[in-house]
Design a protein around this nucleic acid. Structure first.
Length: 814
DNA sequence: TACTCCATGCAA
DNA sequence: TGCATGGAGTAA
């Protein structure tokens, strides 16, 4: 009888030695092992048990003696379809990730098995003589003798406070008294947020830190653990200790709920399409029904009703019996968004979102795979939904950077969408009011289909936008964040009982503190970045690594007085309160909306007219739709304009266009004021006029001249490590090898290599960062060269303390 | 001679 | 990453 072999993606491999591993399928498992099923296998010289995914099966004549056999299967039926199994190696080659990293994206987190160590007393062990063992050893023996099932490493940690690698345990293992086994165990639990409330009559002793946390807690009542940690600056360990001492209670609440059908009814979209919408929808349907797969860009100015159009298309595809995936950026996956879909499509909608509990995530995943759900709505990872017979993928706001993964596998959802569109002979619809330059270029050059909506739906008209020159404009009563012009507009708006939205894309109170005498900037101990002063908790905080310490007034190095400057949202809120004492002001940023419900509640309250002014970070800039908002103010448009990143123009244009589009979505004409110190900057004027076409013309010329995407692909190779010198050397060495390889072996390949340099935030979380930027043509040959260079490099002992990664078309190249 | 420690290399 | 292997060094 022939031998059956399986190609497996094994978990916990490193990129250096990752590849499909071949295992023997034992006779007994022949029926159960098939592609897409997970198995456990012995791996490595110690034959430790690991989870692996079956990628493919093959027959073999003669058995190779080096091959090991599969231990058992973990699934009764395949988790991955042929399509997904094909996508796995595709992703490995493009994103320089391991096979199993790709697999993990495609299966719901709750379904994951983890390999855990279990310890139990050897059956042969009889020698219960206390005098033979040390205290700790004896405790371990006692504990394990009592546990029939044995104990996991984690359980031992909890009971005895010992590490799995401690001497006592290792000693017992060596003597054969304790036996270690490892087995796959299901890791299921619920993604909830931890809330904490004080036990008021608590009368024990507390450490100073615990006391301060306790006092705060008594003042505020119930808060999330995260918020408490923000306000008091203590670590979660301190908070936990508080609960252990009985001073507080920690409980969990579900973070996310599916909208009820009844609530959804109110959010139904208008049933009728405008003539323009109907015409575009018809065109799209025609392409959609064509047998060939295609990608299309739907450009529609803000308020033109793109949603209504693609809902129409979705309906059509569903009616034809095919499945639909809709992706939205993180920020716009709100209960309102879901309600729109639930209202239109009822129970056939499944939701993919990081806020779901693991159980829910798994349920939704199964509903999709089984075909009960025909439409998936979710964020980036929803493009991997196990939809059979996929007919349509809609990407709303396709330019959003949340579609690009910032950790391995560093994929872009748009690329995965295109792969699936081709595989399924389906249709991919990219939607945006400010498309990415790359997508618009593809549409203009005929690689994508192109459709546009140029009129606002209903009576809404495009807002009137003005730039306010902060160099010449008088400030309102000495308030540096608010100009006279903006103050007048806000006050008029208040008088008319309308609402205003103000954008300031920086959190905190003061964004900068510097010593008057020695000019030292107060910066994070772990990152090369200045600390932001937060008035809400009187602390200095790092927005990169989360470091936080109590604020102080005197310079740490010379004792001089600190000068605080730079305004964030907290300061803006303060100044607005002083300027408009009668106005009801709402601040929205990640500090005020630590949990999901807080944001929901606040937006609902604003929508109900309980506030007059909303001031916030980019959270307020996108996707919100409030009838009564007629004024939008951008407090400072300047931050993103002068960074070196090649996408900064695009980002500025996008943000401004979007936020301006929040004004006048109802019956009244909207106004927008953009405050800037550089009123001559052309991109501000283009955004003010909402002139995407001209923006594109300007930008594409720059991209062509500089050979940036879409005229080349970019690869960033990043180096991270503790010692700056080593990291720098690693980057330089890699750069040298790159040059050498390309000039010696592939002199004909077009490539531009930029010198290795420190990342713009050169230190983050205590680690130094360097990068190499390359402009090249993303071909198979090129990718293979890079992959082999990375593998060779990570084998170099000199740089073992440096991690290398490759990021194709990164979101930023800073 | 026996044993520990660490650098090295490999994973099916 | 994590484990086995073996050579170097050390103690007896």
């Amino acid at each position: 009888m022939n031998l059956l072999l399986a190609q497996l993606a094994v978990e916990n491999t490193t990129y250096r030695f990752d590849k499909p591993f071949t295992y023997i399928v034992p006779e007994a498992l022949r029926a159960a092992v098939c592609p897409g099923v997970r198995v456990t296998v012995p791996f490595g010289s110690g034959n430790r048990t690991r989870v692996a995914m079956v990628l493919a099966l093959q027959e073999a004549e003669q058995p190779d003696s080096r091959l090991k056999a599969i231990l058992k299967t973990l699934d009764d039926e395949p988790l991955l379809s042929a399509e997904m199994l094909e996508l796995v190696p595709w992703m490995k080659s493009r994103y320089y990730c391991t096979l199993f990293e790709a697999v993990k994206l495609m299966i719901p987190a709750g379904i994951g098995y983890k390999i855990v160590n279990r310890y139990r007393i050897s059956a042969a062990f009889k020698d219960y003589d206390r005098t033979l063992y040390g205290d700790l050893e004896w405790q371990i023996i006692q504990q394990l003798s009592n546990a029939k099932q044995g104990m996991t490493g984690a359980q031992l940690m909890v009971k005895l406070g010992i590490d799995e690698k401690c001497d006592a345990l290792c000693g017992l293992l060596e003597k054969g008294i304790v036996i270690r086994e490892n087995a796959a165990s299901r890791n299921m639990g619920d993604a909830t947020s931890k809330m904490i409330c004080a036990v008021p009559d608590f009368s024990g002793t507390l450490s100073p830190k615990q006391q301060s946390a306790f006092d705060t807690l008594c003042d505020v009542g119930t808060v999330s653990v995260r918020e408490l940690s923000y306000f008091t600056g203590v670590s979660t360990a301190v908070i936990k200790a508080l609960a252990d001492k009985g001073a507080a209670e920690i409980f969990e609440v579900e973070r996310f709920r599916r909208p009820k059908l009844s609530a959804a009814e109110q959010n139904a979209l208008p049933k009728t399409l405008s003539p323009e919408q109907a015409r575009v929808a018809q065109e799209i349907l025609r392409e959609c029904d064509a047998p060939e797969p295609s990608v299309a860009l739907l450009y529609g100015i803000t308020g033109s009703g793109k949603t209504a159009v693609f809902m129409h298309v979705i309906r059509h595809v569903l009616d034809a019996g095919r499945g639909v995936i809709v992706t939205v950026p993180e920020i716009s996956l709100t209960p309102q968004t879901l309600a729109v879909f639930t209202a239109a499509f009822g129970d056939t909608v499944a939701v993919f979102h990081s806020g779901l509990s693991m159980g829910e995530r798994m349920d939704e995943w199964k509903r999709v795979r089984s075909g009960q759900a025909k439409i998936v709505v979710g964020t980036r990872s929803a493009v991997f939904a196990p939809m059979q017979n996929l007919g349509l993928i809609v990407m709303d706001e396709e330019q959003e950077s949340t579609y690009k993964s910032e950790s391995s596998p560093r994929y872009h959802a748009r690329e995965i969408a295109k792969f699936r569109t081709n595989y399924n002979r389906a249709y991919c619809l990219l939607c945006s009011a400010t498309p990415s330059v790359e997508s618009y270029y593809m549409a203009k050059s005929g690689k994508y289909q192109y459709h546009e909506l140029l009129n606002r739906y209903g009576e809404a008209i495009v807002p009137d936008v003005r730039l306010v020159d902060m160099n010449s404009e008088d400030l309102y009563r000495g308030k540096p964040l608010i100009s006279m012009a903006l103050a007048r507009a806000v006050s008029e708006n208040l008088e008319q009982g309308r609402q205003s939205i103000l954008l300031l894309n920086r959190r905190g109170y003061h964004t900068y503190a510097v010593c008057r005498d020695c000019k030292t900037v107060v910066s994070c101990p772990n990152c090369s970045i200045s600390l932001t002063y937060h008035a809400a908790n009187n602390r200095l905080m790092c927005h990169y690594c989360g470091h936080s310490e109590p604020a102080y007034a005197r310079c740490r190095s010379c004792g001089g007085e600190l000068t605080f400057s730079g305004g964030g949202t907290q300061k803006a809120e303060d100044q607005l309160r002083e300027a408009f004492p009668e106005a009801r002001i709402l601040r929205i940023d990640t500090d005020t909306t630590a949990n999901k419900y807080a944001l929901e509640k606040k937006l609902a309250a604003f929508s109900a007219g309980e506030y007059d002014i909303m001031v916030g970070t980019q959270m307020v800039a996108k996707g919100l739709d409030f009838e009564n908002v007629t004024l939008v103010g951008v407090l400072s448009a300047d931050q993103s304009l002068y960074s070196d990143d090649y996408r900064s123009n695009e980002r500025t244009f996008d943000l401004l266009t979007q936020v301006v589009g929040r004004a006048g979505r109802g019956r009244f004409r909207g106004t927008a004021l953009i405050q800037t110190h550089v009123p001559e900057n052309p991109y501000l004027h283009l955004a003010a006029r909402q002139d995407y076409a001209r923006f594109f013309e300007t930008e594409i010329r720059f991209r062509r001249a500089m050979l940036y995407p879409p005229f080349s692909d970019i690869l960033q190779i990043g180096f991270v490590g503790e010692k700056e010198e080593t990291v720098r050397l690693a980057a330089e060495e890699f750069s040298a090898r790159l040059c050498e390889t390309f000039s010696r072996d592939y002199p004909t390949l077009p490539i531009r290599l930029l010198r290795a340099s420190a990342a713009s935030v050169s230190r983050m979380g205590g680690k130094y960062r360097y990068k190499i930027i390359m402009k090249y043509k993303n071909t198979k040959q090129f990718r293979e060269i890079i992959a082999s260079l990375i593998i060779a490099f990570s084998a170099d002992k000199r740089f073992s303390a440096v991690t290398v990664y490759a990021d194709p078309n990164p979101d930023t190249i800073l």
